[in-house]
Design a protein around this nucleic acid. Structure first.
Length: 918
RNA sequence: AGGACUAUAGCUCAGUUGGUUAGAGCGCUACCUUGACAUGGUAGAGGUCCCCAGUUCGAAUCUGGGUAGUCCUACCA
């Protein structure tokens, strides 16, 4: 074995072996444990969020698989309607053509070509992460089976009256020419203006001043509203206004919607271009005047010189025209929330169109109950509040999209515009006796989330009733980010409850979002993304810079991104390997919402891998070719052997508990501490005095060799879900020595806690041993005694147990603390430096080694600490309230602490006195 | 406007039902190429647990208020 761990040598080889051996498939036996992957965009690539999430899922799956569950991890991708269509349209643009020139069918073929070409990227990357889903069951939302499910759901919901078509205001994206749902609109504060202008009364008796942030919409005004209680305007209600420019007469109405104290207290109402105005207009029976076309340019309902203008140009012209008419009162700076499409980035226009909607309110009822009753549990629990808040005020869901890529809506229209919904044109004709009436299928497709909402059951074969559906549904847990609780989680719960009459999953584990070192969201446009694969393989600086600076939305950002990248990664990124990356993700998976990705952590865990690697090297060097007790020859375990097995047992308990609570950070920390701080730092060192002692018996040698192997082999299994590659690689080398069978650690049994294996005697003996050794090391360290220098040690005030331990463990003490010998001090010990182990003092004779003043200073520092503690403890114990009310156990503990501290203080006092007498 | 979350070492974060001398990793200081590992070892320094008040014998932990930050939902034209 190499002296440093080289992940690139082993990872891909092992992965290919696992996959081809079929280890990822469900075993078919044991209790089912199912996870459906949140489907990433089929043409996308893996980002840090995927890496994080998929690692967590893989840990859960590998853990349950090793525990004997029948695990199904279902992989797949979604078709990402808008995103994918945009990508392909951009490609067409580079070839100087458009989808309209190609036509619908040819365009869709192009997208399928693109999907074939790029669709494997993300699944290849997932493999690099060591993910172990059942690839043979990979699904895609546009697969025939899933498409059938989508169609079936649509038809049934329509027949049940839960899907309807209506002409309503929708969020219209004038760039992408499609409606989008509320959730796809991002409203952010932007600087704008508030224009005040004057509307003259039709009878010439005066005017009224309205305020608006969107002057151009005045061409579609159908009334002006004031608050019914507003004394300033009450007398005007019912009067008519002559709308300037448009030269239409519109009424003044009273409506509670108006806030008296905002703006001028008069609101122009444009029902066809504003959601609130739409409601006001409906209440007062106002007409809807649509002034925009699909590009958000002014249409034929506006004066001739406005027609065809963009909304931006129209705004300028309205302002200029009003100004010319002397109607512009004032312009104020005003910050307002501007709604933009999450994909296109352009300002969204409320626009009147025919769209399909899901009656979400009806479906939400059972979905709320499922969480209230605990049938579905969120982890951490507080996300349930977010879920409830949204669900209880849910709006109908606009599911139609004016795109070509997606599931085409199974609705047909005759020439009169009557709509027929069915599974096929034939079915529709037959059902409605349409004969050969010309029919035209709806041009629109469904929101991608509509198909994702069916994911847990459509992937298992629904609407057919399959054995898989029976066995693996409901799924066990959904692992997802809080950003898609509404988009996906809530909708999945609604749809699954409605169609399957059962929950889609029992637990929703909500993890945080991975951010960069400064806490900024990683995004391509900011140029701060990290590619998980680059962390695994490494990347040189120039390549990283060019990766981050290509495809930036704003070319100006280029220099800035480059500078920042060069500063943050002056050496590029080293290769850390998959296991280190996974361990980093897991160690960051606490309950927080933001996960700042810290390069220091991944480096630390790369080192951890190296530590494991070298520990294994040590174990193999000392066990290969020797009898490790695997054939049943008798063994004698040392106290260290018994201790490490006991510590391992505690670790198993801690890891299992942490996993059951989805605290992967705590689980990984337990593993780290056990392997590094106990197994490597102490146990391997404690094994040396046994293995390298010519006087050790065969039984003792076998005992220690067996324990070296056994503890490591068990720890590897314990760590395997977290670090699959290095554990498999070492396990393969170790399994024969450990006497275990099996082709892969993946399918080996997961270690389980057994309290019978806890050895408290061995633990307290080793604690004693450690504090003895640490006492010596502290003196060495602070007194600058070379580690190579062997020193004699005396002990004073040793109890009979101390004496027995010294006798029994002198080989450990001498070797680990580099001692000449340990002896019981007589009544007049030589001048010494001191350390305390319980009541016993360890004396390191100073002759020629130690500076008296330095030792006094050191002891005084200890003394000060003890004084502090004594003051604190005695204060506490002299407090009547404490003694009267605190539990007896707590009081006893404090008394004991005080006694120990007092005793230690007097010993150190004495020592200082004797040093001072020199 | 409502709500949620966060605030602990220079940095990134743990801290279970109130009882610890408040922990880890990275970074820092000193020493060490000892026969698994310098991607290492040993020792050490470093904290007003954001602030104020309260509950309690006892608060990093519970309550109230404040400050700062992040986010979500709704929205005033």
């Amino acid at each position: 074995m190499d002296t440093t761990y080289q992940p690139s040598d082993i990872e891909q080889r092992l992965y290919e072996a696992w996959e081809s051996a079929g280890y990822f498939k469900p075993s078919g036996t044991g209790s089912p444990y199912t996870i459906m992957i949140p489907p990433p965009n089929v043409t996308g690539s893996l980002h840090m969020g995927h890496g994080f999430q998929d690692t967590i899922m893989d840990v859960l799956i590998r853990y349950h698989r090793m525990k004997g569950c029948d695990t199904l991890w279902q992989p797949g991708t979604d078709h990402a309607g808008i995103a994918t269509q945009m990508v392909v349209e951009r490609q067409l643009l580079e070839q100087n053509t458009t989808r309209h020139e190609l036509g619908r069918e040819a365009f869709i073929d192009k997208i399928w070509d693109w999907k074939e070409q790029s669709g494997g990227t993300i699944t290849k990357q997932l493999r690099r992460l060591g993910a172990s889903p059942d690839w043979s069951r990979e699904r895609f939302t546009m697969d025939p089976g899933l498409s059938k499910a989508v169609q079936e759901v649509f038809v049934q919901l329509f027949e049940q009256g839960l899907i309807y078509r209506g002409k309503r205001l929708v969020n219209w994206d004038p760039k992408l020419h499609t409606a989008i749902s509320d959730l796809e609109v991002i409203s952010e504060e932007e600087k704008g203006s508030m224009w005040h202008f004057s509307y003259p009364l039709a009878d010439g008796s005066g005017s009224i001043t309205v305020a608006t942030t969107r002057p151009e919409t005045m061409l579609g005004d159908t009334c002006v509203a004031v608050h019914p209680d507003d004394e300033r305007y009450q007398h005007l209600v019912g009067k008519m206004i002559l709308l300037p420019i448009a030269n239409r007469e519109i009424p003044i109405v009273a409506d509670e919607y108006v806030e008296k104290d905002f703006g001028t207290g008069c609101v122009k109402i444009t029902p066809a271009h504003d959601f609130n105005d739409y409601e006001v207009g409906k209440r007062h029976d106002m007409p809807l005047i649509n002034i925009l076309d699909k590009n958000a340019c002014l249409n034929e309902n506006t004066p001739a010189d406005y027609q065809g203008l963009s909304r931006e140009d129209a705004r300028k012209k309205v302002i200029a025209d009003l100004d010319a008419l002397g109607l512009m009162v004032k312009i104020e700076d005003h910050t307002l929330k501007v709604p933009r499409g999450d994909r296109s980035g352009v300002v969204i226009e409320p626009w009147l169109t025919d769209q399909w909607y899901v009656d979400a309110k009806t479906l939400a009822g059972p979905a709320i109950e499922a969480v209230e009753s605990g049938d579905i549990q969120f982890v951490p629990k507080n996300w349930e509040n977010t879920y409830f808040a949204w669900m209880r005020d849910i709006q109908d869901w606009c599911i139609s999209r004016q795109l070509w890529w997606g599931h085409r809506i199974p609705a047909w229209y005759d020439e009169q515009g009557n709509v027929f919904v069915g599974r096929s044109e034939e079915e529709v004709r037959a059902k409605h006796n349409l004969g050969d009436t010309p029919l035209h299928q709806d041009d629109d497709v469904l929101d991608t989330w509509f198909s994702s909402a069916l994911w847990t059951f459509s992937t298992l074969g629904w609407p057919e009733s399959t054995a898989e559906l029976e066995r693996y549904h409901p799924t066990s847990v959904l692992v997802t980010g809080f950003d898609i609780i509404f988009f996906w989680v809530a909708r999945m719960i609604m749809m699954t409850l409605h169609f399957k009459k059962e929950v889609p999953f029992k637990t929703v584990y909500v993890h945080g979002l991975v951010r960069d070192a400064e806490g900024q969201k990683m995004s391509k446009s900011k140029g701060n993304v990290l590619d998980p694969i680059d962390l695994i393989d490494g990347i040189d600086l120039d390549t990283l810079v060019s990766k981050r600076t290509t495809g930036l939305m704003q070319p100006k950002m280029r220099a800035k991104v480059e500078k920042k990248t060069r500063k943050e990664f002056p050496e590029g990124i080293a290769s850390y390997g998959t296991d280190a990356l996974r361990f980093t993700y897991l160690s960051l998976a606490s309950t927080g919402r933001d996960i700042k990705f810290d390069m220091g952590r991944i480096e630390g865990y790369r080192n951890f891998c190296n530590k494991i690697w070298n520990a294994a090297r040590y174990v193999l060097m000392n066990t290969e070719g020797h009898d490790c007790g695997q054939t049943g020859n008798s063994v004698q375990l040392s106290v260290a052997d018994r201790w490490i097995l006991s510590r391992l047992e505690h670790t198993q308990e801690a890891v299992a508990k942490a996993i059951s609570e989805y605290r992967f950070d705590l689980a990984s920390q337990s593993l780290y501490e056990f392997i590094w701080n106990e197994y490597c730092d102490w146990y391997l060192e404690l094994s040396k005095p046994v293995l390298w002692d010519d006087n050790s018996s065969e039984e003792q040698l076998r005992g220690t060799r067996q324990t070296l192997v056994k503890a490591l082999e068990t720890a590897l299994r314990l760590a395997h879900p977290f670090m699959p590659f290095i554990t498999e690689e070492i396990w393969q080398k170790l399994k024969a020595l450990a006497g275990v069978e099996g082709d892969t650690i993946m399918l080996a049994a997961y270690p389980e806690f057994n309290s019978a294996n806890v050895d408290t005697d061995a633990e307290s003996d080793i604690e004693w041993l450690k504090s003895f050794i640490e006492g010596i090391r502290t003196i060495r360290g602070e007194m600058n005694i070379a580690p190579s220098k062997a020193i004699p040690v005396l002990v004073k005030d040793a109890s009979s147990q101390d004496v027995a331990r010294i006798e029994q463990y002198s080989n450990f003490l001498i070797k680990l603390a580099k001692l000449e010998a340990v002896q019981i001090a007589d009544d007049n010990p030589p001048l010494s430096a001191t350390a305390l182990v319980g009541d016993m003092s360890i004396l390191v004779p100073m002759a020629g080694l130690i500076d008296v003043n330095a030792e006094i200073a050191r002891l005084e520092k200890d003394l000060a600490k003890l004084d502090n503690e004594i003051t604190r403890l005695s204060g506490k114990l002299s407090n009547e309230g404490f003694v009267a009310k605190a539990p007896a156990a707590v009081i006893d503990k404090e008394r004991e602490k005080l006694a120990i501290a007092t005793d230690a203080k007097s010993k150190i006092d004495d020592q200082i006195q004797s040093l001072r007498q020199i």
